[in-house]
């Protein structure tokens, strides 16, 4: 049995008075890709953002229930949020490289994490390894000092993935990472995720059903802030238990 890296129980999220997540119970296994699917407004991104406490940045948000990472409650008062976000990296829908060089983008997180003793040679290696893992090294290696913004969307997104990898997280959250990209760039990102999953636990929110079925091991379907069903991707896409899942997968609503 694969280890559970994250267990969440009865997760509820409120925007002020309004409950947006109605008690989600969901676990994530080590070295697997889990896809979160559901129509817009189903709460999948909101739930994803609970996992590295990025929702904390919104003032009126309250989260109840429990989310444990390696059995430790990430909402406990003594948790260091910067430390947590080092363990749980995130990639967003729009590629968001900083307006620096490719090299500085990838090195940024490492510097921020306070590893001041990293030598130039060590940093060179971290940057190269991260860009290689993100499958973009060959395309940027001759232009490491060019602005990251001068690359294509697909390349920018992989530079952003390299930036996350450089900090050596255990878990990577991706919020619709390919919805702004063309099919070729999307495939490149998917390949990257498949090739790095042996070292990470990956959770991806996607609107692209084929993407979920192609790359994920587990799929969770959310609707109206509730988890409708979760399980191995093969089962969800061939024989889902709930009619709502079947209807959504076939584009009947949402």
């Amino acid at each position: 049995m694969t280890d559970k890296v994250i267990t969440s129980e009865n997760v509820r999220l409120y925007y002020g008075e309004k409950e947006a997540l109605h008690g989600v119970n969901l676990d994530f296994k080590k070295n697997e890709i889990t896809a979160l699917i559901g129509p817009s407004g189903s709460g999948k991104s909101t739930y994803l953002r609970c996992l590295n406490r990025i929702n904390d940045l919104i003032p009126e948000v309250t989260v109840t229930g429990s989310i444990k990472m390696d059995k430790q409650d990430i909402y406990a008062p003594n948790v260091d949020i910067t430390e947590l976000r080092k363990r749980v990296g995130m990639v967003f829908q729009q590629p968001n490289p900083f307006p620096f060089s490719v090299y500085e983008n990838v090195a940024y997180g490492v510097k921020l994490a306070g590893r001041s003793k990293v030598s130039k040679a060590e940093m060179d290696k971290i940057v190269e390894d991260s860009l290689k893992k993100a499958a973009v090294w060959d395309e940027v290696k001759d232009n490491l000092n060019d602005s990251a913004l001068s690359f294509s969307g697909g390349q920018q997104q992989r530079i952003c993935i390299a930036r996350v990898l450089a900090v050596k997280p255990e878990i990577i959250l991706l919020d619709e990472p390919t919805s702004a990209l063309d099919p070729i760039s999307s495939y490149a990102i998917e390949n990257t995720l498949l090739s790095i999953k042996k070292d990470y636990t990956i959770i991806i929110v996607t609107h692209n059903m084929q993407q979920a079925s192609r790359i994920s091991d587990q799929t969770a379907f959310l609707l109206d802030g509730k988890l409708v069903e979760a399980g191995p991707t093969k089962e969800i896409f061939i024989n889902p238990k709930e009619k709502e899942t079947n209807d959504y997968l076939n584009g009947k609503f949402g």
């Binding site: 969800i236 061939i238 024989n239 889902p240 899942t245 079947n246 997968l249 076939n250």
Partner: peptide, 9 residues
Amino acid sequence: QQPVAAYFR
């Protein structure tokens, strides 16, 4: 149409 689940079956 790329049907899945019940329609695929």
